[in-house]
């Protein structure tokens, strides 16, 4: 199975909303979103993302089953893993990584291990280096890494860190990211 992981922080929310709005209801792959968020704000995020999305969006419970065409948003104050079989989500309260829980590095590294070369990692705007190591893990697994063009990012720190950590496959504008995901054929 192919899996798409998307990470972002400051400035990424509008891009994620646009991506989800552009994907069809019968999208054949699961999407995993790891977005930095306030730990005390537990409601509203899924609802806001769902407004324009045809895909069902969940904040998964631990050991929730993964289904194609579903979007899994890392819950506040938990790290989100994808089990090695790719069929389940695991949550964890381990220490913060890069000052973040959920940490993009954790979700991306887990996706690299699970999906191997059948993974697409997309890193969006953000203000710290979380996700850079995860992009490297995805690249090392032989999969595809895309970063949002730094010039387009509201905050470019995150994408620049990823580009420093590994050789990314594509530096795309948000329109190009959407087009890539629409045409994606695993």
């Amino acid at each position: 199975m192919l899996g798409v992981v998307i990470g972002g922080s400051a400035g990424s929310f509008p891009i994620v909303t646009n991506i989800l709005a552009a994907l069809p209801k019968n999208y054949p792959y699961p999407l995993f979103l790891c977005l930095h968020r306030l730990k005390h704000v537990r409601t509203g995020f899924v609802e806001a993302l769902s407004l324009k999305s045809a895909l069902p969006i969940h904040e998964p419970h631990d050991r929730e089953q993964v289904l194609p065409g579903h979007v899994y948003l890392a819950p506040a104050n938990y790290h989100m893993y994808i089990t090695t079989s790719g069929t389940c989500i695991s949550l964890s309260t381990e220490e913060v990584v890069n000052h973040s829980r959920p940490s993009i590095d954790i979700t991306f590294c887990s996706a690299a291990k699970t999906f191997g070369s059948k993974c697409v990692g997309i890193l969006l705007s953000g203000a710290n280096k979380d996700g850079a190591l995860g992009c490297k893990a995805i690249k090392d697994a032989g999969a595809t890494v895309i970063v949002q063009a730094p010039d387009e990012c509201q905050v470019r720190t995150m994408t620049l860190a990823a580009m420093k950590a590994t050789t990314v496959d594509f530096v795309f504008s948000s329109h190009q990211i959407i087009s890539y995901l629409q045409k994606l054929n695993g």
Binding site: Y81, S90, E94, I106, S110
Partner: peptide, 12 residues
Amino acid sequence: YEPLLLCHRFER
């Protein structure tokens, strides 16, 4: 223990 988390703990 949950192998996925444990493996990550070892890596860390």
